[in-house]
Simulated scan of single mutants.
Amino acid sequence: MTLVKFNNGLKNNSNPFFNDVFDSILNDRFISDKLTNRIPAVNIAETENDFQIELATPGLKKEDFKINLDKNVLTVSAEKKAEENTESKKFSKREYNYHSFTRSFTLPDSTDHTKIEADYTDGVLKLTIAKREEAKFQSREIAVK
């Protein structure tokens, strides 16, 4: 089996020099490090009884987080204190580096604001927001007449 490369590797452009110049600029370590997303990735899930928000925040401690609720807006922020490092490190690539960030989530009216829990384990901050009793999924069988 032979792999065939279409367009000679060009990205919808007839001038290969144009692509090479921009690829080298955009793949430059200095620029790409500055453009790297500096907010944690998030997963949001809904179960029968609650909503779950998970933020990937490696390298932080429980004490670094601040979680606030203002009306229906849940705000998660973190600020990492600068640590004195006795051994100097020179990173060749650094993809997770959260000195500070803020993420806000608008909660639906079906949430119970008095039952919000936070747990930080293995670099993942997990927020569990309970649903009000009347908002929980209710299943029933419907009779055919």
Rank of each mutant, 00 (worst) to 15 (best):
M1W: 12
T2V: 13
T2S: 14
T2K: 15
F6K: 14
G9H: 06
G9L: 07
K11F: 10
N15D: 14
P16N: 09
D20Y: 09
S24N: 09
L26K: 09
N27P: 03
F30M: 11
K34G: 09
L35Q: 07
L35P: 03
L35W: 04
T36A: 13
R38I: 06
P40V: 04
P40N: 05
N43I: 08
E46H: 04
T47S: 13
N49G: 06
N49R: 03
Q52N: 07
I53F: 02
L55G: 02
A56K: 06
A56C: 07
T57M: 03
P58I: 05
K61W: 01
K62T: 12
D64L: 03
K66M: 09
N68T: 14
D70N: 15
D70P: 02
N72C: 05
N72G: 08
V73C: 05
L74H: 02
T75Y: 03
V76E: 00
S77N: 08
S77G: 11
A82Q: 15
E83D: 15
E83I: 11
E84L: 15
E84T: 14
N85E: 15
E87Q: 15
K89E: 14
K89T: 14
K90F: 15
K90W: 12
K90D: 14
K90E: 15
E95K: 12
Y96H: 11
Y96E: 13
N97V: 08
F101L: 05
T102V: 12
T102D: 03
R103M: 10
S104D: 08
F105E: 00
F105D: 02
F105Q: 02
T106P: 01
S110N: 11
S110I: 09
S110C: 10
T114G: 09
E117Y: 04
D119V: 00
Y120P: 00
D122K: 06
G123K: 00
V124L: 01
V124A: 00
K126W: 00
L127G: 02
L127S: 01
L127F: 00
T128D: 00
A130K: 03
R132G: 07
E133I: 08
E134N: 12
E134L: 11
A135R: 01
K136G: 03
K136M: 10
K136H: 04
K136S: 06
F137L: 12
S139W: 09
S139C: 06
S139H: 11
R140I: 05
E141F: 12
I142Y: 10
I142A: 11
A143H: 05
A143P: 03
V144E: 11
K145G: 11
